Amino acid sequence: MVERLSLEVAGADAVAEALNHAYPMGFVLDDVEARSTFTLRRAQAGPLLMDEAQASARFRFDGGRMDRVMIGMVRRGSVDASTNGLTGRFGPGQCYLPGEPGHHFTGAVTDTCVQVTSLEPALVADTVGHDTDQPLRFHRLRPAAADGDESWRHAVDYALTLLAGDTCPPLLADATARHLAATALTLFPNTYLTASRGLSGPGAVGAASLRRALDFMDDHAHLPVTVGEIAAAAGTTPRAVQYAVRRHTGLTPLGYVRRVRLERAHAELLAADPESGVLVRDVAARWGFAKPGTFSTYYRQVYGRHPSTDLHT
């Protein structure tokens, strides 16, 4: 189910209250014009949370301590941001980080409309196989690549299409949130990726632990699964289970889960009655494959034929 929240307020006190309701991190506003208004439209399915926030006039803010990974994309107006020694001003079409997780952040907005993506730090860490006690630090507030804004816009626009309806399959919501997390980590230089490049293997994982990890992934493929949960089931660390599963299967843990889900989708297509109205895209979505085209390509790589062929067999 897609949950929604709508706020529309006017006046300095009401704007501050609404911001703290939407983002309970201790917002304090300054230099707020009397005509200021704030509007929020939120859609959320599981870990996938997207906001459209609009603020008229201009005001400065002290946002408190950032408790999540947030990425903004300016639709209109301008935004100033400052956090942990990083500063910037951002305009229409630009994506940016308003703050660093665990750090104080301040800024200002001027007649602004911003698309805000919020991700839980644990999900971001799990997406790349990091332990949650490893701090995430960003080196800049803007993407490093010249096409970073376009890449982020495509990822956000797709997520918004999923949230446009009344329902979004749990696996699809989880996969899309992880795609956004991976995209953000790829676009914005950070300590997670630089640390990963310099890591060597974490040591051996026993056969029994590996078997527990594989069994857990097989048994829970129909649910959103994290690397942390897989590691806990195996009785080892996320980093260790990443290496062990890759050595044994040639896939990351989440890549292995993706392969199991493909196998389940394959079996469902073979068993389906083609006259019942079953659609390939619905089966793909049920098993966490967000884009039908990507699912079809992956399916053909593994099975050598289009999924619709098996549906009509």
Rank of each mutant, 00 (worst) to 15 (best):
E3Q: 11
R4N: 05
L5R: 09
V9S: 02
V9G: 02
A14F: 03
V15W: 06
A16S: 12
A18T: 12
A22K: 13
F27N: 10
D31I: 03
D31C: 06
V32S: 01
A34R: 15
T37C: 02
F38Q: 07
T39P: 02
Q44A: 13
P47Y: 03
P47G: 03
L48M: 13
L48V: 02
D67V: 05
M70Q: 15
M70S: 14
M73P: 06
M73L: 13
N84W: 15
L86I: 11
R89L: 00
P98W: 00
G102V: 03
H104D: 08
G107D: 00
V109Y: 00
V109N: 01
T110Q: 08
T112N: 08
C113L: 12
V114N: 10
V116Y: 04
D126L: 01
D131R: 09
T132E: 08
P135N: 03
H139G: 07
L141I: 06
P143L: 06
A144Q: 12
A146Y: 09
A146R: 06
D147T: 09
D149W: 10
E150P: 04
H154R: 15
H154N: 14
L160H: 06
T161A: 11
D166I: 08
P170N: 05
L171N: 14
L172Y: 03
A177N: 13
H179E: 12
A181Q: 07
T183N: 11
A184C: 07
A184P: 02
F188D: 04
N190K: 13
A195W: 05
A195R: 08
G201W: 09
A207G: 09
A208R: 13
R212L: 01
D218Y: 05
D218W: 04
H222G: 10
H222E: 11
L223Y: 04
L223C: 12
T226S: 15
I230T: 08
A231W: 05
A233T: 00
T237H: 10
P238V: 00
P238Q: 01
R247V: 13
G250V: 02
Y256D: 00
V257K: 07
V257M: 05
R258V: 00
R261N: 01
R261T: 03
R261E: 03
L262H: 04
A265Y: 03
A265P: 01
E268P: 02
D273S: 13
D273T: 11
P274V: 10
P274Q: 04
G277Y: 02
V278C: 00
V278P: 09
V280C: 08
V283H: 15
A290M: 12
K291C: 09
G293I: 05
T297I: 14
Y299M: 04
Q301V: 08
Y303V: 00
S308M: 12
